[in-house]
Amino acid sequence: MAEDKKDIDAVSGVETTGHEWDGIKELNNPLPRWWLWTFYATIVWTIGYTIAYPAWPGITGATAGVLGWTSRGQHAQEMEAARAEQAVYLTRIEDADVNTIAADPELVQFAVAGGSSAYKVYCVQCHGSGAAGGEGYPNLNDDDWIWGGTLDDIQYTLMHGIRHEADFDTRFNDMPAYGRDQILDRDQVSDVAWYVRQISGQEHDEAAAERGAETFEIECSACHGVDGEGVPELGGPRLNDAIWLYGGSHAQIVAQINNPQQGVMPAWGERLGETTVKQLAVYVHQLGGGQ
């Protein structure tokens, strides 16, 4: 800038840059040179950075970067590290049986956390996110267990599933279709249903229930127990309580006797491995209903 063109601002006595926007001028209070060098340094850093790390987009992908860093790789590394940390507990869980695990508060804490996350992936679809189940899907929070509610029972059910035919050891039973196969006639079915309402403490037709009692003893008590208290070893649901898998109204009970719905649960043992199944068992057991 030539000396004579120097434009000095009247108020501050400072030279301007000569730029003007609608009468507003910019004062030239020079920036320190180290600031400029810092700026250049950041540019150099950027170039180095884009060489070292994936950066420049191309047609099929970005440049890989000489350090070979990828977010996938970093994720894998972090997972590796997390797995290494978990390994300590996982080995202990692998070596212990569920009852030993349940007696060790440290392992319980780990198993509940691990079980809860496995639950959220594999179990929520049927049992619901809060494990409260729904019609046809048992509520895991309550104290009514079709196949038993001890840690061992739960673990077995998880390992081998229910009516999961591919597993030789699966839990299995088959309730006869009393109506469909005409084992009982309409009235008999209705009477048994009234009897079931009676033993579960619900409103019922007294005379019909009386008639149904006899049929119950002959047809049902083997699996459901003499008093309808259930036989977990056979998977015969308890009937004299307030919990109903397919509903407890007269019509719903009749429907279930006529043409029973029979739920299926996959065997998880092979798919998830015993260690995860143990954690799931501990998790489910502590939901509130474990025996």
Binding site: G130, A131, A132, N139, D142, I243
Partner: peptide, 18 residues
């Protein structure tokens, strides 16, 4: 208070909250 389930019916008909 547990949000899910809000309550659980137990076999004796009592109600439980977690």
């Amino acid at each position: 208070h547990d949000r899910n389930p809000v309550f659980t019916t137990l076999s004796d008909g009592s109600i439980r909250n977690g």
